[in-house]
Simulated scan of single mutants.
Amino acid sequence: MRQTVAGYEPSEQTKLRVQDHQYQTYGPWIFNEIIGYIRLHFLGNQVRGEYFSAEKKRNPISRRKVFTYRTWKLAPEVTIWGQPATNEEIFAAIREYVQDCRAELRRDRFIDDEILERLGPHLDWQQLLRAKIKRK
């Protein structure tokens, strides 16, 4: 179905202006409705996550949200068993932690883990875990 304005097809220039206005006002669609995030990290052989949110009584679509630290532990930590753990075991523990976080959030909240699911199987989690331990 073609998009029309008052029964007429808008010009290409009009379409571009509308798209530009939407981008300038709201930013990329995939990120304009974020009201919080979980920062995942390793502590020894555990997966943990800190929760930050911009929740208010009303959460309008905006590019100017201020995220506030809410808690150092949204869900109980998940231990990575098997030392040294394989990349698959580490990624499984991360996925388990994210799933536990889903259970802790309000019902009207959604965790978008699409990028994690796409990249996770291809990352060298062992190297990331070792790098984190070395810095301490």
Rank of each mutant, 00 (worst) to 15 (best):
Y23S: 09
Y97N: 07
E104N: 11
Y8E: 15
D124T: 05
P76H: 10
E33Q: 06
Q83P: 00
Q19Y: 13
T79A: 09
A85C: 06
L116I: 11
K56D: 14
D124K: 04
R135I: 10
I111F: 07
T86A: 09
E104P: 08
G44M: 07
V66C: 05
F91S: 02
I38K: 00
P84Y: 11
L40S: 00
E89V: 05
E104T: 14
N32K: 11
T14H: 04
R135F: 07
L116M: 11
R118K: 13
P76G: 06
S11N: 02
K136D: 13
D20Q: 05
E89I: 03
T14E: 13
R63M: 11
A93K: 04
N59P: 00
R135S: 06
Q19S: 13
Y26P: 03
E88Y: 01
R70Q: 15
H41D: 00
Y26A: 05
V98E: 12
C101T: 10
K132Q: 07
P76F: 07
G44I: 06
M1A: 10
L16M: 08
I111V: 08
W29R: 08
V78C: 07
N59R: 00
P121Y: 01
R2L: 03
R106Y: 14
I115E: 14
G36Y: 02
E104C: 15
E114P: 03
A92H: 07
E96P: 00
N59Y: 01
R39V: 09
Y51I: 03
I34T: 07
E50F: 02
L105P: 11
I80Y: 09
T71Y: 02
L16D: 10
H41A: 01
G7E: 09
A6M: 10
R58I: 15
K57I: 13
N87K: 00
V47T: 02
I80E: 10
R95V: 02
Q127R: 14
Q126M: 13
H21K: 01
M1F: 10
L105V: 11
P10C: 02
A75S: 14
E114W: 07
H41K: 00
T86C: 05
R48T: 13
W81M: 04
P84V: 13
T68V: 15
E12F: 08
P28S: 00
E77Q: 06
R48E: 11
T79E: 12
Y69M: 13
T68Q: 15
D100N: 14
L74E: 11
